[in-house]
Simulated scan of single mutants.
Amino acid sequence: MHALWVWAHPHASSLNGRLREVGVSALGAAGWSVDEIDLYREGFNPLLVGRGEADVRRHQDRLRRADLLVVQFPLWWYSVPAILKGWIDRVFESGFAFDVPDPETGKPLKYGRGGLVGKRALTVVTAGDRAATLGPRGISGDIEDVLWPLLHGTFWYTGMDPLRPHLITAADDLDAQATARTEADLRLRLEGVMTEPRIDYLPMSEAHYDHTIRLHDSVAPGDDGLSAHREGGSGPNT
């Protein structure tokens, strides 16, 4: 198996840097080959000005080879760092990740189907907030809802299987013991990364959505939130 580990943090000596080392080492010990993209150290240009540029094609080739995409970043203003957003904007191009036509109908494949189908996607996320604030009823919102644009609107949209975010909270306050536990948790998570169930988003099919791509009234009746777009209308907290 082959993994592409993309990470976005300005400081290699940070907790993020340590977790990247632990994660890449754990995959290697399990027999994986791992390709790393360090966006800051590589000086990746996040500005989208054209299509089909040479550096973008190289990154697409690296993503194409991967069975697993790991995207690691600190949660900044409830989203990804700008350099990572730019990587997605540039690399996930039309014709590569999306706007890939269905050979039977000619219509673009999306939401469970697409140019990146067959790959799994795991986010490794650090946050300064305490765990409760990014969990059920937390003031920041559940992490799966906070990252909806990435998990559903990017990974699932392009056909990848999005996995539950691997969230490290109170990241600024971890002592040596807590850091050791955090490292062990990441190793354990990666051991089962190809067998754990994906987030159970609904595919875009006539069984679930009408011609306006709105859920049929019979699907998750009474649920108008993001959880309605999951199997059985079950959200991350149910």
Rank of each mutant, 00 (worst) to 15 (best):
G86S: 02
W87Y: 15
W87A: 06
D89W: 08
V91D: 03
E93G: 10
S94Y: 12
S94M: 08
S94E: 11
S94F: 09
F96T: 05
F96W: 13
P101W: 09
P103F: 02
T105E: 06
T105A: 05
G106C: 06
G106L: 08
G106M: 09
L109R: 13
L109M: 14
Y111H: 10
Y111P: 09
Y111K: 04
G112P: 07
R113Q: 12
R113E: 12
G114R: 06
G114W: 11
G115D: 07
L116S: 03
V117T: 15
G118E: 08
G118S: 03
G118P: 02
K119H: 09
K119S: 04
R120F: 06
L122R: 01
L122I: 02
L122Y: 03
V124W: 06
V125H: 02
A131E: 15
A131N: 06
A132M: 04
T133P: 00
T133L: 03
G135K: 00
P136R: 13
P136E: 15
P136I: 01
G138Q: 07
G138P: 12
S140G: 14
G141R: 00
G141A: 04
D142I: 05
I143L: 09
E144Q: 03
E144W: 00
E144F: 00
V146R: 00
P149S: 02
L150M: 12
L150A: 03
L150T: 07
L150K: 00
L151R: 02
L151T: 05
L151P: 10
G153K: 01
G153H: 01
G153W: 00
G153V: 01
F155Q: 01
F155I: 04
W156N: 08
T158K: 02
G159P: 11
R164M: 10
L167F: 06
A170R: 12
A171R: 10
D172N: 15
D173W: 14
L174M: 14
L174I: 13
A176C: 06
A176M: 08
A176Y: 07
A178S: 12
T179I: 11
T179G: 02
A180L: 09
A180G: 09
R181G: 11
T182Y: 10
E183M: 01
A184G: 11
A184R: 12
D185Y: 09
D185E: 15
L186A: 08
R187P: 09
R187Q: 14
R187Y: 05
R187T: 15
L188D: 15
L188R: 14
L190N: 07
G192S: 14
V193R: 03
V193Q: 04
V193T: 05
M194L: 15
M194P: 06
T195E: 14
T195V: 12
E196C: 08
P197Y: 04
P197D: 09
R198G: 11
I199Q: 00
I199Y: 00
I199C: 00
I199P: 01
D200S: 14
Y201W: 13
L202P: 07
L202R: 06
L202D: 06
P203H: 01
M204R: 11
M204W: 12
E206I: 00
E206P: 14
H208P: 03
Y209P: 02
Y209W: 04
T212L: 14
T212S: 11
R214S: 14
L215A: 04
L215C: 04
H216T: 07
S218A: 14
S218K: 09
V219Y: 10
V219L: 06
V219Q: 08
A220M: 05
A220L: 05
P221G: 10
